[in-house]
Write a protein that binds this DNA or RNA. Structure first.
Lengths: 345, 345
DNA sequence: ATGAAAGCGCTAACAC
DNA sequence: GTGTTAGCGCTTTCAT
């Protein structure tokens, strides 16, 4: 059989002594077929080493068996986790995943979106970099938005982490340990994730009469290097110690920790840091980075489930799912309250 | 145009006032077409919002525009980097990437291999988990093997890191700093990567009259937890301090560092550790993990280039490319030699 | 340089 | 329950 031409359904049908369509029915587990015929066909397929041509299937039936996933960067630990969750789930639904990294570039995102559509994926899961108003070309096929940009598309299915709850988790944790007014290291200001984060922060601290203007805020890219630089600026601006920092991502928080050390300061004694992501790398620093963990894998898995629902025509109107965050306590935040009590005693 | 049926090449041809085939030629940049006609067709396509159906293209031409990538785990930092390298390169060649995680399971690998073949990818890049003798079904399409398993397929294109050179880099570095006989934490013994690693180790140390039997060796999975356990066993077996450990992966090395700390020992003073991977997470530990860095992205990129060469019919016989490793010096290895000199002085 | 026609491998109506 | 037939949208001879 090696080296010979690829077997088609016709070959299988011939060998099984049935018609093309009967073979097709047997191969696709159609119900209206006799057990005996099915067995014959399956045996023939097996013997021939037949492998269904999904291009042909997709062409005829409209079901290509593929889903598109367009994210900023597959090499970023957070997005890699999301991708893994999506992959596992897609496998369960019998779908393959076409994955693209837009690298936070609007232009690359556009190109990739075109690619997935041309590949005739059945649906697209997208973390949108271009956060402008809705692009009409996005509307005409099953699609699920993931991450913060989802808010811009209220009429679309979307799934993300519950930022409000996550921020509350972090802020409460800080507050319970005596850090009432943490500094913030936020992401790029033009990104939607930034306003969502600030809104959540404002919501929490507003109740305590603190507005974001009262807080020291520095901006950073989602890299440790940039986080380190931002922390440097905070240290310049805020000579008071001890001090606490809430970083919008773990990588940034980790960078902040390096800056702290580089200045001869100790984390958590002089500087407390809390991250936002919950990636594995944060468990390796000393101290480990206490962080709010986003439900990365679940986001990937859920987005696929929602997409399949759309594809199969269940789910009439747009759903918005927001998955809870968890706090991973490690050692990067000091407990000022306990310290004070000990001192008194 | 919204909501209406998807535009086909026939629609484009009609609007441009040419035949289907002329439109097809214009759209695929065929040379034998007048500039004027091409322009007309392109405009029509643009106006209609036409998007080429790659399923149909693939079906007719045999070029689906897709490549398959089957790796152990996209959420593993090393493999995520490989995937990113492959992705960027695939984009350049106008190909999309179908990515699967086998999770080190032979069964899942088999299933995924079937999936990519059914999707009619033009070629497959594979890190083989099942390391038995050659599977005949792998031979009949363009394929490049990546990682250590490649050695089992001498008649296939393959690309990986130069383990011998990497081990030499690590061993030499250790030796120069007075660590003449490091302990080893190796990966699962049944995996081919293990024998390759041990062979390289044997090659280096043989020259110094040291056989692997003289070395303390512990086995570990590619996780920090498992590495931590393995380090615990080493510490039990080897009471002598200071001591050096060469770990076969960064995640394992990082785990070893945690075990060291947990025992109240100091890295690098009591225990020196060197890793093998060069992932970002290793830069966050204290001390940072000195490690041999494998050329992960380059492996991904090169594998795609080789695959495209195969697909396009260049490259008659199997090539084996092995990319050099680099040493990333951080702080996890002590310098016994200098320490001794200082003492003397 | 362009058009007509065939057909890639499959599924979905429609017969029987 | 099974066979027949007609395409899905495109590329590719083969004419012209």
């Amino acid at each position: 059989m090696r080296g010979s031409r690829r077997q088609t359904i016709v070959d299988v049908a011939q060998r099984a002594g049935v018609s093309k369509s009967t073979a097709a029915r047997a191969l696709s587990n159609a119900p209206e077929i006799s057990t005996e015929t099915r067995k014959k066909v399956l045996e023939a397929a097996q013997a021939l080493g037949y492998e269904r041509n999904h291009l042909a299937v997709g062409m005829r039936s409209g079901r290509s068996g593929m889903l598109g996933l367009v994210i900023p960067d597959i090499a970023n630990p957070f997005w890699a986790e999301v991708a893994r969750g999506a992959q596992d789930r897609a496998e369960i639904h019998g779908r393959a995943l076409l994955i693209f990294s837009s690298d936070w570039s609007v232009e690359r995102e556009r190109v990739h979106l075109t690619s997935v559509r041309q590949a005739r994926v059945e649906g697209i899961i997208l973390n949108r970099v271009a956060e402008r108003q809705q692009d009409s070309r996005l509307a005409d096929m099953p699609m699920v938005m993931i991450g913060s940009s989802a808010a811009l598309f209220p009429d679309m299915d979307n799934v993300g982490s519950n930022i409000e709850q996550g921020v509350r988790l972090a802020a409460e944790y800080l507050r319970n340990r005596g850090h009432l007014q943490p500094c913030l290291i936020v992401g790029p200001r033009q990104r939607l994730a930034h306003s969502r984060f600030m809104h959540a922060v404002g919501g929490y601290y507003g109740a305590y009469g603190i507005t974001p203007d009262n807080l020291i805020v520095e901006e950073s890219d989602y890299t440790p290097e940039s986080g380190e630089a931002a922390m440097g600026r905070i240290l310049d601006r805020a000579p008071k110690r001890p001090l606490a920092v809430l970083a919008v991502s773990d990588l940034i928080g980790l960078g902040a920790m390096m800056a702290t050390r580089r200045r001869g300061l100790d984390c958590p004694r002089d500087v407390s840091i809390i991250g936002f992501d919950g990636i594995q790398a944060s468990s390796f620093s000393t101290p480990g980075l206490t962080a709010v963990q986003k439900p990365s894998r679940a986001i990937g898995a859920t987005s696929v489930d929602m997409l399949i629902d759309q594809i199969e025509g269940r789910n009439d109107e747009a759903r918005s799912i927001s998955l809870s965050c968890k706090l991973i306590e490690r050692g990067s935040v000091s407990d000022l309250v306990r310290a004070a009590q000990v001192e008194v005693a």
